[in-house]
């Protein structure tokens, strides 16, 4: 597959209630690498194996939740084209100047009908993963600090108008629908999993009355063993764990859901099948949602449906 258009999840900016407590959590427990702080007080992180300057940014606020989710696109010509395509589709866009986020180029910002703020950008400084590009070692010492996921993998967002959101991602941004859960009456989608490449999902949405809610940001682990190790580290640090370790039926991914110190859920995720854009969408009926969420336990955990930030 030739990757063009939107390449990958680039960054998430998340609100926290106590900045320094959260810095300690994300740096020393989750094991992200702190890469900078800006004049507005935001703290920037990346996963150890990511090459771009930042993928996860936190900001002190009086509520938890997601400020915006950003997508890395191929180049500036792609950025301009997608901006024009969004406007032609009827979506208002806004340009955020280069440098507003550290080491990040100009961003195109727009709001989805679900109330979530999305961004596209083409440039972010490549700071590397600490491993040379010539004769690279497979990992560095950073892999052993905390949970140490290798990348920001995806997010699940809760809000209204998921059918309209799906159209924007599939008709304008080049994503395709990998899996879905039907509404109880079978006539619509309660939740959708969308991919822009060959990952099982790059973003997911679930229908929810309140707009703009964060269900979780997900971080990729290298193995099931690393997911279990993440669970050990969560317990050693009395992290509030939601679900897992277990395996999702939807995506087939292995998972632990847990919360940061401000109640923003995150996931340590491994695996998942590898779809192509021509694959047919896989469908789960609502009465099997429990299996889709937690395949071994077949349990639709109440917190999955009701606890968001």
């Amino acid at each position: 597959m030739a990757m063009t258009g939107v390449l990958r999840p680039g960054h998430a900016q998340v609100r926290v209630l106590d900045l320094e407590e959260s810095v300690r959590f994300y740096r020393d427990v989750l094991g992200l690498v702190e890469t900078g702080r800006d004049a507005t007080g935001r703290v920037y992180f990346k996963c150890w194996d990511e090459r771009d300057h930042s993928s996860y940014v936190i900001r002190q606020a009086d509520s938890a939740g997601l400020d915006f989710f950003g997508w890395r696109v191929l180049d500036t010509a792609t950025l301009d084209k997608l901006d024009a395509d969004l406007q032609a589709y009827g979506i208002k866009t806004e340009r955020i100047p280069a440098g507003e986020m550290l080491e990040t180029g100009e961003r195109v910002r727009f709001t989805l009908p679900s109330g979530h703020v999305m961004e596209l950008y083409a440039e972010k400084s490549k700071v590397g993963n600490g491993i040379p590009l010539v004769n690279p070692a497979p990992w560095s010492k950073a892999r052993d600090h905390g949970i140490a996921p290798i990348r920001l993998d995806h997010a699940l967002l809760y809000g209204p108008n998921v059918a309209e959101v799906q159209k924007i991602f599939t008709e304008v941004l080049g994503f395709y629908l990998v899996e879905r859960v039907l509404t109880p009456d079978g006539n619509g989608n309660a939740a959708i999993w969308l991919s822009c490449g060959q990952k099982v999902h790059d973003i997911a949405f679930a229908e929810y009355p309140e707009p703009g809610k964060l269900h979780h940001c997900s971080f990729l682990m290298e193995s099931w063993d690393q997911v279990l190790r993440a669970g050990d580290i969560m317990s050693m640090n009395t992290v509030a764990v939601d679900i897992g370790p277990t395996r999702h039926g939807v995506t087939r991914g292995c998972t632990i859901y847990a919360w940061d110190p401000s109640g923003n859920r995150f996931e340590t995720f491994f695996g998942g099948h590898l779809p192509y854009p021509d694959y047919e969408t896989m469908t789960w009926t609502f009465d099997n949602f429990g299996q889709g969420l937690d395949y071994p336990q077949r349990k639709l955990h109440e917190t999955f449906l009701s606890v968001v930030s």
Binding site: A64, D260, G263, V307
Partner: peptide
């Protein structure tokens, strides 16, 4: 049984 213990971090409100 069934107490909705949520995020335990002051973020979710349950």
């Amino acid at each position: 049984r069934g107490i909705p213990v949520g995020c335990r971090g002051g973020g979710c409100g349950v």
